[in-house]
Simulated scan of single mutants.
Amino acid sequence: MSDTNGETVLLLGAGERSSELALAFRHLGADVVTVSDHGETQALTALIDERRPRYVVADAATVATDALIAVAERDDVEVFPTPRATRLSLDGEGLRRLAADELGLPTAPFWFAGSVEELTAIVAHAGFPMVVKPVAAAPGEGESVLLRPDDVEPAWRHATAAGNLKRVIAETVVEVDFEVTLLTVRTTGAAGPTVHFCEPIGHHQNDDDALESWQPQQLSPTALDSAKSIAARIVNSLGGRGVFAVELLVRGDEVYFSDVRPRLQDSGLVTLRSQRLSQFELHARAVLGLPVDTIMISPGAVEVSYPDGEGRAVPDREIRAVLADALAVAESDVRLFPATAAGDDDDVPWLSWSTATAQDPIVARDRARRVATAVRRLR
């Protein structure tokens, strides 16, 4: 077991998710330095030289990859995720070619286009419906569903406006039963790399943009074996240690690779209640080289309500009344955060994590929704 006492973790991230991860590292005896401004290579390199961390952990997509590559070449520091994994997480084309062409993972049929003309030719060949999205953007950003020829040019403009490159990926729409996130933990030890799997997490975005996720999402034994095989192959190819969120499409016994994020995701917040070790604790343990387990102690669900607009000033008495109603739901919990820094008299939008457990994931989902409904009164 590693001696973590006195070792410094430089955590590149901001927001409540990064705060939870920092706390998990501190609970294991690590000294944590959190940096929210991490997009400039020279400044990040200077900070690393000053702090001399043992570990550099990126919990954000917008990280100066050049600096991480340079730091990863040193003998006295480890970088997670690996620079290769960070780069591929920002390169949808490179990631898809790795998965389909090099690893042979099952995916929806896909093509890449660098102009409206190329996209038009692809659609003429593949037919409708198709999904078009940027090759480099956050999940869901710039995504469109094409149903007719008139949709092609607007979809191109939408995708390229959201992405960093004038290039898009076009996918055939595959009929699926549901999407799942398979949190996969990669560790290394004397016996070499090992992967551990959490129970599958189902999720979807509600009409009000709240994210709902639940665990477990039931898969057939055949589909679960396929999901684990796909996740292990892509995660081992990316390398490093930590939690990877592998996104999969499931139809009966068939499983298709969709995406992988080498960092924690909001869909994994359900593990705060459902597992013995949350995604934050698993990530911290794996990075520090400590033993992990992925034991689920109860089916659970979470609804993440994102702030919509500027919010309003909410008296403390009203906040307590709302929380009293929310926490009256059986086996529930709420984490409530101001989404912006503000003074006492300012209007503050609220971010909330509403979680619940039950003996059945359907009941857990219903409880989490009831908790979130109560909390939304703070908007």
Rank of each mutant, 00 (worst) to 15 (best):
S278D: 13
P307Y: 05
G311C: 09
D333R: 13
P338S: 02
R335H: 14
G311N: 12
E331D: 15
I295R: 13
D316S: 15
T357Q: 02
E310A: 15
I295N: 11
G343C: 03
L323G: 01
G289M: 05
P291H: 04
Q359W: 07
S332P: 00
W353Y: 11
A328F: 04
T340Q: 10
A330K: 07
D346L: 09
D344Q: 15
A358K: 09
A284N: 08
S332E: 00
R285S: 13
R317I: 14
E331T: 01
L277C: 02
E331N: 13
G343N: 06
G311K: 09
S278C: 07
Q275H: 14
P338I: 00
Q359K: 08
D344K: 07
S278R: 05
P338W: 03
P349V: 11
L327M: 12
F337E: 14
R312D: 09
T355Q: 04
W350L: 12
Y306A: 11
A341Y: 10
T357D: 04
S274M: 03
T294R: 02
W353Q: 13
G309H: 06
I295G: 00
F280Y: 11
D345H: 10
P338K: 00
L327H: 04
L290N: 09
A313N: 14
S352M: 08
P299W: 03
A301W: 03
D346W: 10
S278N: 06
P338C: 03
L336Y: 03
P315E: 10
R335G: 01
D293N: 13
V287C: 07
A358M: 08
M296E: 12
V287W: 06
G311V: 10
A339V: 01
S274T: 12
L351Q: 05
S352E: 11
P291T: 00
L277G: 01
P307Q: 06
P315C: 04
A339D: 13
S332W: 01
D325N: 09
V329H: 00
V329G: 01
S305I: 10
T340V: 13
D293S: 12
G311E: 07
S305G: 06
A358P: 14
S352W: 09
D345M: 10
A324E: 13
D293W: 02
A342I: 04
M296G: 02
A341H: 12
R276N: 11
G343V: 00
A284V: 02
G289T: 06
V287D: 07
H283C: 08
S354P: 02
D345L: 15
A339K: 00
E318K: 05
D346I: 06
T355C: 11
A286C: 09
S354R: 01
Y306Q: 06
G289H: 02
L288V: 04
D344L: 12
D344C: 10
W353S: 14
L327P: 04
Q279M: 11
H283I: 00
E281I: 03
T340Y: 01
G343M: 04
D325T: 09
D333G: 12
A301S: 11
A321N: 09
G309S: 05
S352H: 09
T294Y: 07
D316N: 14
A326Q: 03
S332L: 00
D308Q: 14
D347H: 14
V287L: 08
A356G: 06
V304G: 02
A356E: 03
S298A: 15
P307T: 07
R285C: 11
D344E: 15
L277S: 07
